Computed example of a mutant assay.
Amino acid sequence: MADGPFRGQKTSNCTSVSAFILQGFSVIPEMQTISAAIFLLIYIFSLLGNISVITAVTLDSHLHTPMYFFLKYLSFIDLCSTSTTLPRALFAAMAGSEVISLPACAAQLFVFVFCGATECFLITSMAYDRCLAIYQPLTYGSTMTQQLCYALVGVAWVSGLLYSSFHTANIFTLSFCDPLLEHFFCDLPPLVRLSCTDPHKHETVGFIVGGCVIMSCLVLTVLSYILIVATVLRIQSTQGRHKAFSTCSSHLITVILFYGTGSSTYMRPANGYSPLQGRLAAIFYSILTPTLNPIIYSMRNKDMKAALRKLYICGP
């Protein structure tokens, strides 16, 4: 390929790129406009859903409890996550400007990974909250204080920043020779595939760090639900068991969506990565899951539905 705006400094065995070309939602040009229109509607729906949850929890005093406190921050992270990837991809599809500079790509990757990691820690905190509420209801109020809630959110944010900083630095110390990024945003697996240097060491270190962090959160979440299930099964009344399970069902669905969609992409080596499968999986974990979370928590929660009715109908 001739030198152009995507070529940068020479390395020992290749010419590094200074910008990438995002392939978009589809390899078929005719599908780009249709895909952009669909994802624009989904993005608007995601914005409205997450902003509604944040506003309802903030304004309704009945929702000033730890469970909804964590939900508000989860919605904020989901809002940031979709806003990091979709607006740029939609602009590229509709305006035909697929070029993204190397610094902009690094910034997009940093924010997206930060949002994903922070959500992982928040989901773990929410599982711990539900576990305390069911397993130790008598001491729940004195244990899950406002200070502890803020501390858990703070740990999630700081951990997300550290995790994202590591992965961004780990990826962008590689050299890239091909500017064509077969994705609609800058994500880890497609970037690793573009490396013209051996990415094995970087990939192995990233896999170990990511696996340790994610598996630690998953194990803590699973242990929390083991205690929850064991406690609920000891409840004598059917109504009591149903009430206990109903407080966890929305969070459990979120856990399944989060780990189920993300693991298919991030827990496999780059040489087994398929661009088509990667785009399809990314649609689920970067677009649909953050969009569905407000629906999941609203449809299965009477207090949230009542707060949203008051918010939009201005009545009981």
Rank of each mutant, 00 (worst) to 15 (best):
Lys201Ser: 11
Asn301Ser: 11
Pro316Tyr: 05
Pro275Ser: 03
Cys14Thr: 07
Ser250His: 06
Ser264His: 13
Leu138Glu: 11
Phe39Cys: 00
Ser46His: 05
Asp303Phe: 04
Val111Cys: 09
Tyr163Phe: 09
Phe245Gln: 10
Arg241Leu: 11
Pro290Val: 00
Met126Trp: 10
Val255Thr: 15
Tyr128Lys: 12
Trp157Leu: 15
Ser165Leu: 12
Gln23Phe: 06
Gly315Ser: 12
His62Trp: 03
Gln146Asp: 02
Leu47Pro: 01
Arg309Phe: 02
Gln146Pro: 01
Met31Ser: 08
Ile28Arg: 12
Cys80Arg: 00
Ser159Lys: 08
Asn170Pro: 04
Ala133Lys: 15
Gly262Met: 07
Thr55Ser: 02
Phe166Asn: 04
Cys314His: 12
Phe176Ser: 01
Asp178Cys: 10
Tyr312Phe: 14
Pro137Arg: 03
Met215Lys: 01
Gly272Ser: 12
Pro5Ser: 12
Gly260Arg: 04
Ser263Gln: 07
Cys80Thr: 04
Val113Ala: 10
Pro294Phe: 10
Pro290Met: 02
Val27Asn: 13
Leu71Asn: 03
Ala307Ser: 07
Ser125Thr: 12
Ile100Asn: 08
Ser175Val: 10
Leu48Thr: 12
Ile235His: 11
Ile100Lys: 07
His64Gly: 06
Ile171Cys: 10
Gly211Ala: 02
Trp157His: 15
Thr247Asn: 08
Thr221Trp: 08
Ser165Cys: 07
Arg130Ala: 10
Thr118Lys: 09
Val17Phe: 04
Tyr140Glu: 07
Arg7Leu: 13
His167Gln: 08
Phe112Gly: 04
Ser274Val: 11
Pro269Ile: 00
Ser237Gly: 08
Ser165Arg: 05
Asp303Glu: 11
